[in-house]
């Protein structure tokens, strides 16, 4: 199989790979260039005023949505949901205490793993 694919890793597949890579990069780059152009045109006015209002709302919305999708456990079992709830609670509690990023994340992972191991 591996050898077949290596033989088949033809010019077409390479071109596909490069097209996706370039396309993904442009999806990240072009809006940046466009916004910098837009901001440069409004150089003398308030910078935040030239940022579309809906964009400032969509940003946190996207992060919240990424949180929502990442919450779904890989295995949909009661144990996984319990571990997820416990992990999120631990994250929340440590965040309220520390207002930092690393420690709450670490606490969440530890509690999630602990519930998984103890109740498995």
């Amino acid at each position: 199989m591996n050898t077949d694919m290596n033989n088949d890793m033809s010019t077409e597949i390479w071109l596909t790979l490069i097209s996706i890579a370039v396309g993904t990069y442009l999806l990240r780059l072009v809006p940046h260039v466009w916004m910098q152009y837009k901001l440069a045109r409004h150089e003398n006015s308030d910078v935040s005023a030239s940022t579309p209002d809906w964009l400032t709302v969509m940003g946190p919305g996207m992060i919240a949505a990424m949180f929502g999708t990442s919450v779904v456990p890989m295995q949909l079992s009661t144990l996984s949901w319990m571990a997820t709830a416990a992990g999120l609670l631990a994250t929340l509690l440590v965040w309220r205490k520390t207002r930092s990023m690393g420690l709450p994340t670490l606490a969440g992972v530890l509690v999630f793993g602990l519930v998984k191991v103890v109740f498995a």
Binding site: E12, I13, I20, L27, Q36, V47, M62
Partner: peptide
């Protein structure tokens, strides 16, 4: 392969919103 390109780029299309959201901080 044309479908592979379209589908993968569609999945990544959400990335267009990221840089504009950071624009005021980037310069």
């Amino acid at each position: 392969l044309w479908l592979v390109v379209i589908m993968t780029l569609l999945i990544n299309a959400r990335h267009v919103l990221y840089a504009p959201n950071l624009a005021v901080y980037l310069g």
